[in-house]
Design a protein around this nucleic acid. Structure first.
Length: 824
RNA sequence: GCGGACGUGGCGCAACUGGUAGACGCACCGGCUUUAGGAGCCGGCGCCGCAAGGCAUGGGGGUUCGAGUCCCCCCGUCCGCACCA
């Protein structure tokens, strides 16, 4: 008797089965070839939303597919459980972030199980877990010991809404906080930094070997921002315009040392420590006023200001000497010169730099071209290549040679040197918040800053705190937390109250997954060596820069410190960035308040239908509009498969046995083509066309089954087995159920099917015959037809003859067996 | 401004290396099953045309026997970086 497709019953049963049997648990000594699939661990904000479903469906498909291919797949899940939202919620509701977060983790875990995502749940890692925090702190201390951590006063991005500092990367282009949307201010504060710039070159070089989307690599390269040039000194001029030897020259960095003869003024940053010294008395009041006006404005705000260059720069009255010409030139201060990039001072060459050109015009500076523009050039500053002019010993050299010659000259004269500069800055990791991993440092009046001894880790967060909207972390007033003992002298000490940026937690969780039970080390190097690099990392493109850069830095540093094996210098060998989901044209997110919860769909059409809809709609790397989803179509398709494949299906009634008919043989070939096609499409992440393949094949089987001859039993069984096996990674529950009913056993433990190459080729093919490139006829020909026979067959066609209209072919292009093109 | 991706029916999209444009799904239309549940099965469906045929992959040019695919110019959409010396 046919039974209706009941996704609820099937899905609940199999999800329980996978948990009970530990189907996707894998041990570190598993004999199968290791394969590590990782979807970025989520921030637990509550039950899963559609973005999660999309992300974790992609990952799950790969986990199940690789498992059937025979790999021992490591498929862990964890939770990025520290962070601002939980603490902000605590201030509003009074509920402790831990309570709230752990409840959310439960909800999210349940959601993930309900969409059928398969994980090794024994390996769960939670950022806020003391057993994880302990090692986050331990790594901090390791880095501290190695000089990769330092403390410094720095102008920082302060978000008044979040009441904490932000990394540069967390400030959006319009000067607002990526999280709260508040306008970010500039403040000087004592902060902790990771010395990521130490790895700038390696981070840049190693990108080449990664199988990552090119887009992401380009973004990282730009972020690192390597530029080659020269750094040299501009001597300070005395009132007569001569170089003073009693004061240090002002250092500048340039990528265009070849244009030095065109330097007609110089500009320093308003924050430059020598600004005051270089300003003349008569200009001091104006310069101070100028600098004060900038105070408190964030760097981003300054950089995006649209004021005219007259307002943005001011003469200091001081002069410096252009070492190329020996001439004294005026020194300006301008807001667009950043203290945090290069040396905080620049040489200005209006002839070859458009902004310098405009600045020179406004402030009445001389403009001298030092590169000959082409005759038809009618612009202002000329940035292209050409011979040097007005440049003394450089005259006649092209830009590249002139650069080298200029640097050689600077070095020979002891004035400067070749220099590589990076845009990348050190990672500001401290946050003035409670719900994060405490920085394991204490301050002793006598011994100063002291690391907490490893055996005292973790420095735990106290639970008995009150969350008040004061803007201050409760840690700063918690006596029990603050009171510490100096590990060096044993005297009283005060504990650091800053906690770490949550990007620290996510910079090594993929390593912890390899050995999450370890109590003696963050992970066993052998376990890391076995699983890393992650074979396939999956996540949103929004993490293209920050998270991925930080994780790469951590991996390299841990390898250098001997914590990770030296073979592991990159965390993620392959990266896939899947598209986001939009609703009403905007990104679906909690902050936008336009989340679609999957519950209703899971209750109604089921997880398999929802998964299929996510896979089918578009190529996985592209953004999708929720409005375009076709859940009903997918549910309909699954029910169609069910009716066809369930034991006792009326569609299979009266199946023939004995010799297969030609139609049976054709269907068998289609079965093998399906297997070959799906294998290829899974490997290429072409999931949308794979789903189309299942539908196409199912339609084919339906027509064949309902034809006059009826189905041939063995052919039908083989067809349905292949369909279920290949579809199992995409629709795991339905396929598991049907497989068990039909064959017994567990489909996800079956080997991946293989196509018989002999059955992938047909005896005959449809040959297209064109006249002048337009299709005029189609002829069935043997697949092994030769050129002469193909041409003859084409010319024998009546329709072709009609189109030739008595004329003789000028030329015949033959591409057997598929195509003949007759040119007249 | 710089860098990148992309533009194909009413809609989401397919066509991996230049070789049958529009697979698959949605929507729509028709038929069957006497079917009252958002059902099932079969078929149609780029545009113009009764047809033969013609026209079609943002627009314009080019290479080629043959271009959605390659090259040049233009238009448009989206994303990233934006005064980086």
């Amino acid at each position: 008797m046919p039974t209706p497709y009941d996704p609820q019953a099937i899905e609940t049963r199999w999800q329980q089965h996978w948990l009970d049997h530990g189907t996707y648990e894998v041990d570190n000594d598993d004999p199968r070839p290791p394969y590590y699939v990782l979807s970025m661990y989520p921030y637990p904000s509550g039950p899963a939303h559609m973005g999660h479903v999309r992300n974790y469906t992609m990952g799950d498909l790969l986990v199940r597919y690789r498992t059937m291919r025979g790999d021992g797949v490591l498929s862990p899940i964890g939770f990025d459980s520290f962070g601002l939202p939980a603490e902000n919620a605590a201030i509003q509701t009074g509920i402790h972030p831990r309570t709230n977060t752990e409840a959310n983790i439960e909800k999210l875990s349940a959601s993930l199980r309900r969409i059928g995502a398969a994980y090794d749940w024994r390996r769960v890692v939670r950022s806020h877990d003391p057993s994880y925090m302990r090692w986050t702190q331990w790594i901090f201390l390791k880095f501290h010991e190695a000089g990769l951590v330092y403390r410094d006063t720095a102008p920082v991005n302060w978000c008044p809404g979040c009441q904490t500092v932000l990394a540069n990367e967390q400030v959006l282009g319009d000067g607002t906080c990526e999280r709260s949307g508040d306008i970010v201010e500039n403040r000087d504060m004592e902060q902790w930094f990771y010395r990521i710039t130490e790895y700038a070159q390696e981070l840049l070089d190693d990108l080449d070997d990664l199988e990552w989307p090119n887009k992401v690599k380009v973004m990282q390269r730009h972020w690192i921002g390597r530029s080659e040039g020269a750094q040299f000194g501009l001597p300070v001029a005395d009132t007569d315009g001569n170089a003073r030897t009693d004061v240090e020259p002002v250092q500048v960095f340039t990528t265009r040392p070849d244009t030095g003869f065109g330097m007609t003024f110089a500009v320093i940053s308003p924050e430059h420590p020598r600004l005051d010294e270089l300003t003349t008395d008569d200009r001091r009041a104006d310069v101070h006023a100028f600098r004060s006006a900038l105070a408190g404005r964030s760097e981003i705000d300054r950089l995006s200001s649209e004021g005219g260059l007259d307002k943005r720069g001011i003469a200091t009255g001081g002069r410096v000497v252009n070492p190329f010409t020996g001439q004294a030139i005026p020194l300006f201060a301008a807001d667009y010169v950043l203290m945090t990039y290069g040396t905080g001072a620049i040489m200005a060459v209006p002839g070859q730099d458009q902004r310098d050109w405009e600045f020179a015009e406004v402030h009445g500076c001389e403009i001298i071209r030092t590169v000959q523009p082409p005759d038809d050039f009618d612009g202002q500053a000329y940035l292209g290549d050409g011979p040097a002019i007005n440049s003394g010993f450089l005259n006649g050299l092209q830009v590249t040679e002139a650069k080298a010659a200029a640097i050689d000259w600077l070095e020979a004269g002891g004035m400067g040197e070749r220099k590589v500069n990076y845009r990348l800055r050190d990672w500001l990791l401290s946050r003035q918040r409670y719900w994060g991993c405490p920085i394991p440092i204490v301050y002793c009046d006598d011994c100063g800053e002291q690391p907490v001894p490893a055996e005292q880790l973790p420095v735990d967060l106290p639970d008995d705190v009150e969350f008040m909207p004061t803007g201050r972390s409760p840690l700063t007033t918690h006596e029990g937390f603050l009171a510490a003992t100096c590990p060096k002298c044993g005297g009283p000490a005060r504990r650091e109250t800053d906690t770490m940026d949550t990007f620290v937690d996510s910079s090594w969780y993929f390593l912890r997954f390899t050995d999450p039970w370890n109590e003696d080390a963050p992970f066993d190097p052998a376990a890391a060596a076995r699983w890393l690099a992650v074979d396939q990392y999956i996540g949103g493109v929004e993490h293209a820069i920050l998270h991925l850069m930080y994780a790469r830095f951590f991996t390299k540093a841990l390898a250098d410190l001997g914590v990770a094996p030296d073979s592991v210098r990159e965390p993620f060998a392959r990266l896939f960035t899947q598209g986001m989901i939009r609703l009403g044209g905007v990104k679906m997110s909690k902050s936008k308040g336009n989340l679609v919860a999957p519950e209703e769909i899971l209750d109604d059409q089921g997880a398999d239908a929802l998964r299929l809809a996510h896979l089918q709609i578009k190529p996985p790397q592209e953004d999708v509009d929720w409005e375009d989803f076709g859940i009903d179509g997918c549910a309909k398709f699954l029910a169609r498969v069910w009716r066809l494949a369930e034991p006792g299906s009326p569609l299979a009634a009266g199946a023939r046995h004995g010799d297969p008919t030609p139609a049976d043989i054709d269907l068998d070939k289609a079965t093998h083509r399906l297997v070959a096609r799906i294998t290829d499409e899974y490997d290429r992440w072409s999931y949308n066309t794979a789903i189309a393949g299942f539908m196409e094949f199912t339609n084919l089987v339906y027509r064949w089954v309902q034809a006059d001859d009826g189905p041939h039993g063995p052919t039908l069984d083989a067809a349905l087995d292949a369909l279920l096996l290949t579809m199992a990674p995409a629709a795991p529950h339905l396929c598991a159920e049907l497989w068990e009913l039909r064959n017994g056993g567990h489909i996800h433990e079956q080997p991946w099917p293989e196509a018989d190459p002999d059955k992938l080729v047909d005896d005959t093919v449809t040959m297209v015959v064109q006249v002048n490139g337009r299709v005029r006829d189609r002829i069935e020909v043997p697949a092994d037809i030769d050129e002469a026979a193909a041409e003859a067959a084409a010319l024998a066609s009546e329709r072709i003859a009609a189109h030739l209209d008595g004329g003789t072919p000028k030329k015949v292009i033959v591409r057997p067996p598929g195509l003949v093109n007759v040119v007249v």
